[in-house]
Design a protein around this nucleic acid. Structure first.
Lengths: 335, 335
DNA sequence: TTGAAAGCGCTACCAG
DNA sequence: CTGGTAGCGCTTTCAA
């Protein structure tokens, strides 16, 4: 609990010199610096973040806003952010709240206004009008991951590209009856909308618009399971290919197919997007992204923006990589 | 960006009066209070957390330490904590770091010492010696969830009880060859150890110690899948019942059994602990716990301890509830 | 290269 | 019931 005054006294210097020695700003003789450091160490001195913050205007902390931590993508991104922040010595203040909830309201109305951070990372934010205004009013740099048009996305995979590759993969294997599984469309998150439209455009480009079908499902593994179970139990209308909105939904579909004794990939090909932790165990063909690295990249970018708010870096969308496993195969000639 | 001085000026009072009116401490006439509040509102005044913290010694923030956010239990607990904290107007500072990692070292060595919180919630902490010392040195209240003996656990299910009920359930159904699946034992987390020992004791109490078997697996769905696949492909030594260390492992086992065309529950009964998000979709019999509520309970307890550090509340372990679905059934007479 | 002193924005004590 | 004043613990001019 000792303060910088104690350190200064012990080292036989003034508070100002102690401060300079410790923070590394301004001139201090090597000898003095060593003495001060030793004093600080032996006293177990830890600067008061409040006092430092008050004096410098910096919090040494980063805020993270995301919809939830119980989905694979968000939890991975969060761990990536946390690691990177820990490595930089920065604290992480979390604001997890679902879009449209009262909590989200509170986050934007009260919590963010406290400006308990030097910058903000927004993940899957899809902010509505007044939320954008709030964000701007903070006058703190914001880096966004997969956060939609309204705010501009700094880090994300190219969703259109990913879903195009996914759809093309099935088309190249000879599939025609390819459905898009996932999302309810009410409302679409920006990412999900991109993915659906990418699918539709790819189908259209291949002359398959008559086969274009959106099957709704919650974006979760059980959601995909339930929707696929419905879809696949109709023997006649059954598709031969499924492009899932993400791996959780894709895996749900694979499980549903197995339950119905529909062979994957013999009778049904399923492709996802993500390369989820469980993807390899289900032999799922997918377009791999690395959310952890996205989180880490967001931290680096934010740090640069905090140092220099004018930093306008070009956004380079990441390309997801096709990982072919065994959930996709040639369509049967007969179908 | 206006400060309390601006508010005071606008309301025509002193800073002290403005402060009293806004914080609700001390006497202020109703009229004055209203005037000050209006001024604050019209200026969009938000107190500086640093200044408040410096003056009061309170941060209005809670630290959360946990091993990871990518496991069902931890992510659920974290969401429970976050919700409760948002409702109380408290910020959440997250320190996610795996036991034994360099990051965990940094968390205990540097981050926690900054005392950026009025209290700490530790989830699944299992702290080692010097970590406990660090924790004490903070002189901040700590509430622990499922955190092991060393620090004492405030909120958790009674693991011994849960696994006993699970094991008894299988025994009552006539199973004898019952294995315990999950955990590597190197080292055991406190919770996992409790569960294994509970299983062993229950087997012993039923005169089944000769059947007591621990099959190791990573504590994850793919981990359970892999281990169960190995275990079950040995037709002769195959058990008829599996008590899994948690639902993720149990679900992995159910999937493995299906792959091997082993009927669940016809030929194999599987029981888990958790009532994971996916449990009902896999018809998994399990002992249900509610990690979200545990998180919320921890917040309430911590708030009480912050208000009165002497609060010594009795720890009431929660009893998990047996949820019977269709992954368990009578053992075949022949086995 | 060092020290004195003035804040950072707020709360809390003490008179009035 | 209200206002003046003294810090909270640190950084940062400005002189020396």
């Amino acid at each position: 609990m000792s303060g910088i005054a104690d350190v200064a006294r012990m080292a036989g210097v003034s508070k100002s010199t102690a401060s300079r020695a410790l923070t590394g700003s301004g001139y201090v003789s090597d000898l003095t610096r060593r003495r001060v450091r030793e004093a600080a160490a032996s006293l177990g001195y830890v600067p008061s973040t409040n006092a430092v913050g008050l004096a410098t205007g910096r919090t040494r902390s980063v805020g993270v806003v995301l919809p939830r931590v119980t989905r694979w993508f968000f939890s991975e991104v969060l761990e990536g952010i946390q690691s990177a922040l820990l490595a930089e010595g920065l604290d992480l203040t979390l604001y997890a709240s679902a879009p449209g909830s009262a909590e989200r309201e509170a986050v934007f109305g009260d919590f963010l206004s406290r400006r308990r951070f030097d910058g903000l990372i927004a993940v899957g934010l899809d902010p509505v009008g007044h939320e954008i205004a709030h964000l701007r009013a903070l006058s703190r740099p914001v880096v966004s991951i997969a956060s939609g048009d309204a705010i501009g996305t700094d880090v994300a995979i190219d969703d259109e590209h990913a879903v195009r590759r996914a759809t093309e993969h099935l088309i190249e294997l000879g599939h025609r009856r390819i459905v898009f599984l996932g999302g309810t469309g009410s409302p679409w998150s920006h990412v999900d909308e991109q993915r659906f439209h990418g699918y539709r455009r790819t189908m259209a480009a291949a002359g398959l618009e008559s086969y274009t079908t959106h099957v709704m499902s919650e974006i979760s593994l059980p959601g995909g399971y339930g929707a696929a179970a419905d879809l696949l139990s109709d023997v006649d209308g059954r598709p031969t290919g499924i492009v899932a909105i993400c791996d959780e939904v894709a895996i749900g579909a694979v499980i549903a197919a197995r339950r119905l004794a529909i062979s994957v990939p013999g009778e049904l090909s399923v492709i996802g997007i993500d390369d989820h932790e469980y993807a390899s165990m289900f032999s799922l063909t997918t377009l791999a992204q690395r959310p952890r690295e996205q989180g880490a990249a967001a931290v680096q970018l934010l740090i640069r923006r905090i140092a220099d708010p004018e930093t306008a870096e070009p956004v380079t969308p990441i390309r997801a990589r096709l990982v072919v496993r065994h959930s996709t195969a040639l369509a049967h000639p007969g179908t």
